[in-house]
Design a protein around this nucleic acid. Structure first.
Length: 480
DNA sequence: TGAAATGTTGGGGCG
DNA sequence: ACGCCCCAACATTTC
């Protein structure tokens, strides 16, 4: 009986894990391992919120492996060196893993393959956590898709993703002492200060919790998804994004559970279709990242190379801290800071303010989200920021500039979302809660709001800023 | 997966 | 009764 390593990455689950299942089927004794490499990803090493999530996801995976009589071996260092070292330590004959589509990982996977195959070690790589292989999809002119709708239509014509696998019933683990760091040695949790209390209160970071969330969403929310998903004060979305990012649930599991739900409850399928198309945007992001590996740094549309962005650390900081004077924006940024997550509708609003009205480079918003989101995902984060900024594929048109006041009144009509995250506006009546700067003095006094003191005035004159943005974006458009 | 500016319509007040 | 003005309310165009 030979030994094999199963390298866990963004697939921190036991169910529907093709690499693990295959290693077991082929009769190997298994070493399950995770390598934390803070260097290979360059600037895109894990952000703070991601590290917190990862800690708990690894703890859960280890617990689940222990139920099978195993454990998760933890290493820290260069991916290739650590894995090569471990292979030799345990005299493994094979390495099994799921692909990861982040650009620097192409190189890591290639080097691993070359180094290990030279030593006669089999390297077995499986599809990663996407539904369709985005690298193989091409439009009629054999080019990568640049527009979402035809991309997604083409995906829906592909053979569906294979049905999810159950966790292997029995796994033989390599016995004896395989050296492992203890989880705290990875130093993933914040200290001095420990800001993770809000995250702890809001998330259960387990494979079981991922499935519970999915089930709850399908039972309670998917039917009304089309409308409710835009209301940030309601629980209208699945909140699966961090679980999907870390692979605690697979996209295929979500896909099939949703299809299954449709065949059972079938009347109005539009909610479920809209939900699946959101998975489609995730696929589209991976598609774009594959074909444009600079997506994280460089504008997808070349004519944005000389766009007149204006760095402004004061405005950036006000935005980051939720002190812009636009209630729905501040609510969103504080929700993010507190919970590591932000409702999608609000993500669009806050991003629009940053890149359009403030003209701050989208990369600075991207970097902030990267550090603070528990669902920070290289493909989705980059593609989405470029989308809002107008420099991405199938991006928002240059003239689409959200008015945070109107967006607030439209999607948070009662002001509940704002009251929850911006407590200094708690007593404001709904008529004025999204525009405190316009409220009559007696309304402000009754609500104990002192503009400029207890709550900031808007950091920018929207009307002027809007015109400035239109001018800048139109110039860029004409220069293409 | 907008918003603002501009255009059109129609009801009501009023001379 | 009629024309005129005002201005919501809605539609269309523009950015």
């Amino acid at each position: 009986m030979n030994n094999a390593i199963v390298w866990f990455r963004q697939d921190l689950r036991l169910n529907d894990h093709r690499a693990l299942n295959r290693a077991v089927e082929e009769g190997y004794r298994i070493v399950a391992c995770y390598v934390l490499d803070d260097k290979s990803p360059g600037e895109w090493a894990l952000g703070g919120a991601s590290r917190w999530w990862l800690h708990h996801a690894l703890a859960d995976l280890d617990k689940n492996l222990q139920k099978h009589g195993g454990q998760l071996i933890l290493r820290r260092g260069d991916f290739v060196e650590e894995l090569e070292g471990l292979v030799h330590e345990v005299e493994a004959k094979a390495l099994f893993f799921s692909r990861n589509y982040e650009p620097y990982m192409h190189d890591v996977e290639q080097r691993l393959h070359d180094r290990l195959e030279d030593d006669g070690i089999e390297v077995k790589r499986f599809a990663g956590n996407i539904l369709f292989d985005p690298a193989t999809l091409r439009n009629k002119t054999n080019q990568p898709y640049k527009v979402f709708t035809p991309f997604w239509k083409s995906c829906l014509q592909q053979p569906p993703p294979p049905p999810p696998l159950k966790a292997p019933r029995q796994v033989d683990f390599v016995g004896g002492d395989v050296a492992s760091l203890a989880l705290p040695d990875l130093k993933l949790l914040p200290e001095n200060p420990d800001w993770s209390g809000g995250l702890q209160d809001n998330w259960s970071v387990t494979e079981d919790a991922a499935h519970a969330s999915l089930q709850e969403f399908l039972d309670d929310a998917v039917a009304a998804y089309r409308k409710e998903r835009d209301i940030p004060g309601n629980k209208g979305t699945s909140r699966l994004s961090p679980y999907l990012h870390f692979g605690q649930i697979s996209a295929a599991q979500v896909w099939h559970a949703t299809q299954q739900h449709l065949t059972v409850h079938g009347k109005d399928t539009r909610g479920a279709e809209t939900f699946l198309s959101e998975l489609g945007w995730r696929e589209f992001s991976y598609h774009l990242l594959q074909h444009f590996p600079k997506l994280q740094e460089q504008p997808f549309r070349a004519n944005f190379a000389n766009f007149p962005w204006r760095k402004n650390s004061r405005n950036l900081r006000a935005w980051q801290r939720g002190q812009t004077g636009f209630p729905v924006v501040d609510a969103g940024m504080r929700e993010l800071w507190h919970t590591g997550w932000m409702h999608n509708r609000v993500r669009m609003i806050v991003a629009s303010l940053l890149v359009k009205e403030l003209l701050i480079p989208w990369q600075q918003g991207e970097a902030w989200f990267w550090d603070t989101l528990v669902d920070a995902d290289l493909a989705s984060n980059s593609a989405s920021w470029q989308w809002v900024a107008g420099c991405g594929a199938d991006a928002a048109p240059y003239f689409r500039i959200f008015n945070p006041i109107l967006q607030g009144e439209k999607f948070d009509a009662q002001g509940d979302y704002v009251r929850r995250w911006v407590p200094e506006l708690k007593k404001m009546p709904k008529k004025w809660i999204h525009r405190p700067a316009d409220a009559p003095a007696d309304v402000l006094a009754d609500a104990d709001v002192k503009l400029g003191k207890s709550y900031p005035r808007p950091i920018i004159d929207r009307k002027v800023a809007r015109q400035r943005a239109l001018d800048a974006f139109q110039k860029t458009r004409n220069s293409s």
